[in-house]
Design a protein around this nucleic acid. Sequence first.
DNA 1: CGTTCTGTTGAATACCTTCAATTCGCGTGG
DNA 2: CCACGCGAATTGAAGGTATTCAACAGAACG
Lengths: 238, 238
Amino acid sequence: MNNFHQPQHIMSDHKQFFPEQLKQAALFQGLPLRQLSDIWTIGQVLKVKRNQTIFVQGEQAKALYIILNGQVKVFKLSLEGKEQILHILGPGEPFGEVPAFAGQTFPAHAQALQDSELLYIPMDGLLTLCKKDPSLVFNMLALLAARLRQFVTLIENLTLKAVPQRLAAYLLHLHDKHDSLTIDLDIAKGTLASFIGATPEALSRALKRMNRQGLLKVNGRTIQLCDLTGLSSLAKGE
Amino acid sequence: MNNFHQPQHIMSDHKQFFPEQLKQAALFQGLPLRQLSDIWTIGQVLKVKRNQTIFVQGEQAKALYIILNGQVKVFKLSLEGKEQILHILGPGEPFGEVPAFAGQTFPAHAQALQDSELLYIPMDGLLTLCKKDPSLVFNMLALLAARLRQFVTLIENLTLKAVPQRLAAYLLHLHDKHDSLTIDLDIAKGTLASFIGATPEALSRALKRMNRQGLLKVNGRTIQLCDLTGLSSLAKGE
DNA sequence: CGTTCTGTTGAATACCTTCAATTCGCGTGG
DNA sequence: CCACGCGAATTGAAGGTATTCAACAGAACG
């Protein structure tokens, strides 16, 4: 776990001793470069392989993680083995921050969806930085607030009765985000199924039915939205 | 909205010019009494009647609320009219704090379940106090962290397949909280149904089945837990 | 004492799940 | 370069559970 190093390939400015992803992370917006450098110094780069477990539910949280590159899922596992994904996170996004700040255990599991590089930031060092610059605390407040909103949306979607509705809501969400009618899923379909609270079979059937109805076209991981109005009214329940 | 007053019946100490509930609110733990007094000064007491709407989704958030007495639900409403309760809050608990701090709109609706008295705290005043005492900000962080954990539990319960499982999980939660085998529901059964993501009919049937299985006994709003082991294994999925 | 809201029960329906079998995609190794 | 093999995705059939709608009973409240 002490494989500390400074990747060269991601430095755009010779004066910066930290990667671009760190600078763009929402958590660190508005922070002086000096502090970013400090964070980079107290952190350790962690390389994880696809499907590798990063932490498990119940484990004591001693640090927060920030994704430098790759993709990570945070999820709950029921005793029957069914998983419900809470977050899918990409470069620049932090995770494990809630229990870390509260000094508690992780409420869920985290696992890499792809080979990834993570910045592992021990809390003691981060708390010291918090005292130096209160804006870091406010950024953390904003982050938690954003997470709460995401959860509200997730809960809303999970309580929509039918799988096609949840799927339509999710696709429209992606459409808003990328502003494109052609959506390229950045996750496996089974992963998507777990995220919208369905089985892979149910997802497959939902896509097929929506295809038949002319709402969209599926080609592997690429989905063409054909009828936004129809999708929208479907998401809202007819 | 300017019905400011100082309720007499809740003052236990003549030197304090604010109610006991304010002192006990988790949000204000560790704050000097002077600041509590300030909060009480900038706030307004709001009386709401049962079923009265407090705020609606999409409304601009300018303040946060703290329940002095009574009961409030925070919920999402789908276009079909189905409601999903996010929180049920009692005396001393704040709500509306997330969008208020982020300067955004409310992501959900709030409505009084009982005649209630709320303390309405405009954000501008509260932010001023935050700058005076950073511990208020950390309390807010702790509050948001706790909310996130509640949501994780709610999501977990919603994705547990069967209604009886969700119900068992909720009842065991109440049992932990009150440490009693006799549980008196402080909410209507229909409200409970909306909270665990079910229809009143489904809840009724689930209770009946669990009654038949000897897990519990129902008498109006009073529920006797008869088989904790059985309930526990049910909640975990057999 | 009656009106209204809440809770219960029944029957029909719709949807998802489960399990099993098959196909597809893709990387590995021959 | 092709064949193999593994995991992911799809499809089918059977079964279970919640939903919906409607009617009724019960409790709360004025």
